[in-house]
Amino acid sequence: MLKFASREVGDVEETWRRFVPSAALQKVDPRTFGFSWTSAALSGFSLVSYRLSASVQSAIEPDGQMMACRVASRGAWVGTPRGDLNAGLPWLALDGPTSARWRQQADVRAFVFDRAEAEDDARRMTGDDRFSLRSATVGSSPVDRDFATHWERVFQHVASTLFAGVPTSAIVEAELRRHALHTTLAAFSPAFMTALERSTQRTAAPRTVRRAIAYMEQHAHEAITIDDVALAADISPRGLQYAFRRALDQTPMEYLRTQRLAGAHAELQVATGASVAEIAQRWGFASASRFARHYRDAYGRSPRQTMRGH
């Protein structure tokens, strides 16, 4: 995580370019300039949040990236060569330049994805190997206000976890990245949602569920997502959801959570020297309180009670 404040104009461009190399400040009023930055970088994914006090015009043209952004400011303007965007909503930059300007102060927040990795993940989510991230499938504006509002909520959730200053496990990071990407594509790509619906498989042989279960039991301690499980079971994520509901009356992620709770339970039963929070993180639970609630539901006692009993 990177966090700092500055009153130097050059710091803004230098920092932004670590995440989006094309970022540029074109017009800045230095008299009121102030800059407060927080960011977190994972593999193939970055989360950026900053406050910029100044009248500014800026531009980006992502190369090999996809960026979803929201500029919260009175009188803000956002536009592309194809036309103006609604500055009161999140927007997405993929192909071609996007410019923004505002006066006095803006709160800027953004998800930045490696384009190739995001495309691979989108194909796993949809089960469509031909799905591609391009202007024909991903728009600059959100599908509607409900999706825009949901994107904002998910940003706050991911930011609150990654900016908390608490180390996160690879499992948690993989889930957060997938959540951010799924939400972004759902908000900006009708084609993505259509592909998800099209990939739903209404019949699934029991062996598909057995393959998924075997994979989860073997890899529960790793940073796997439902996309990885579906790939191992040779079925789409939507099809896997349906198959699990039909066969086990639960979702694949509920089953995976059970396996991870079992792994955490085994660790709590031996004196490893690790704290409850550390064990929870290791098994993919970002929130210790949520882990404790799931653990009590499964084992009828708190994690600390289990730890103290051994």
Rank of each mutant, 00 (worst) to 15 (best):
Ala159Gly: 08
Ser141Ala: 14
Arg145Val: 14
Arg109Tyr: 03
Gly75Glu: 05
Val154Ala: 03
Val143Ser: 03
Asp120Thr: 12
Gly88Cys: 06
Arg82Gln: 10
Met66Cys: 12
Ala148Asp: 10
Ser73Arg: 07
Ser160Glu: 09
Asp114Pro: 07
Thr126Val: 05
Arg123Gly: 04
Ala76Gly: 05
His157Val: 08
Ala116Phe: 04
His150Tyr: 15
Gly64Phe: 01
Ala100Thr: 13
Arg130Tyr: 12
Asp95Trp: 08
Leu85Pro: 02
Ala170Arg: 08
Leu162Gly: 05
Ile60Tyr: 08
Asp107Gln: 15
Phe147Trp: 11
Ala106Asp: 01
Trp91Gly: 00
Ala59Glu: 15
Pro142Leu: 01
Gln65Tyr: 10
Pro62Glu: 11
Ala76Gln: 02
Gly88Met: 04
Arg153Tyr: 07
Phe131Gln: 00
Ala72Met: 09
Ala76Ile: 01
Gly83Phe: 03
His150Val: 01
Pro167Arg: 06
Asp114Cys: 06
Ala116Cys: 07
Val71Phe: 13
Arg130Thr: 15
Arg123Gln: 13
Arg74Phe: 07
Pro167Thr: 00
Pro90Leu: 00
Ala122Glu: 06
Arg101Gln: 12
Asp95Ser: 01
Phe113Tyr: 09
Arg115Ser: 06
Gly96Lys: 10
Ala116Ile: 04
Trp91Asn: 11
Ala72Cys: 07
Pro97Asp: 02
Ala87Thr: 01
Leu162Ser: 00
Ala118Lys: 09
Val143Asp: 04
Asp107Pro: 07
Leu92Asn: 11
Ala159Leu: 07
Asp144Ser: 00
Phe113Ser: 05
Ser160Asn: 12
Glu117Arg: 15
Leu133Arg: 00
Leu89Pro: 09
